[in-house]
Amino acid sequence: MPILQIREALREAIDEEMERDDRVFVMGEEVGYYNGAYKVTQGLLEKYGEQRVVDTPIAEAGFAGVGVGAAMAGLRPIIEFMTFNFSAVAFDQILNNAAKLRHLSGGQFTIPMVFRGPNAAAHMLSSTHSQAFESFYCGFPGVKVVSVATPYDAKGLLKSAIRDDNPIIFFESEVMYGVKGEVPEGEYLIPIGQADIKRPGSQVTVITWGQGVPITLEAAKMAEESGIDCEVIDLLTLRPLDRDAILQSVKKTNRAVLAYHGWPYGGTGAEVADLIAREAFYDLDAPVERVCYEDINFSYAENLEELAIPSPKQIFDAIAKVAYHSL
């Protein structure tokens, strides 16, 4: 099976969907002549031309809104944010237009579009460039939110996102574009709304997504060496949640840890913890643990940043804690 980087898997998804449907186009800063800030769109301008691979000035509110307007008029835009940090200045377009216009128009308009780009901390970029936006974009109705961590998931889910008739927020990771993995030849789709068990296990459920996935798998390996068998669930879709996958696993293991790149206050981690507390309370043998960012703005300094981000060791400690395992 071919081995691809995440950026290549994303590119294949976009390429195949553009090939398949003339209404699909990519728009964003540096997506064309520069071949993509992170090379996701490399080669697409040459293949599809300026009409369908559209370089924009630095005007996120402008081109996010153009995407919404184009989607309402029958196109299927893929709007690339160089990083989701810059989506903050386009927030009104996503919150008040993309997410609301179908409802506001009584179902007259359909908004089939994808907002995609890297999310969460990269490396030493300080506070404005290190933010996890999942709590913002999962915090209102009218959108679906996806987060990927492997080339296989990246391709299958981006293709589904492009074909979905709703606005989709699609999170990638700046530090994971080079991550390699198997991607089958030929077309496949991964349904939005389904979590994936990245590692089956019986004693502790660890729920994660995005950049949390590799560190959680590392923590699960550490746990295995200590005799604790973890099940790692990659949510993949953060809104709507795959409640069944979460509850089924927790009811089996009776223990749950949330491990993710994101702030602790509110958001998906809190939502999942709440779900488990309400729907699986009597199945729990220990309180739910959460390992995530510290509740602070990020610093540039390497040591300060490292301390704010969850480590495999911290996740392992949380696993050990819910398993009442003496360290």
């Binding site: 081109f63 307007g69 196109l75 008040n96």
Partner: peptide
């Protein structure tokens, strides 16, 4: 559309026009 966030509809209108040119 009647849009209630001041100025937010101009990019959307440009998007309709973008689609007109595209299609």
């Amino acid at each position: 559309g009647g849009y209630a966030i001041v100025g937010g509809h101009l990019p959307v209108a440009a998007g309709h026009a973008f689609a007109s040119k595209y299609l």
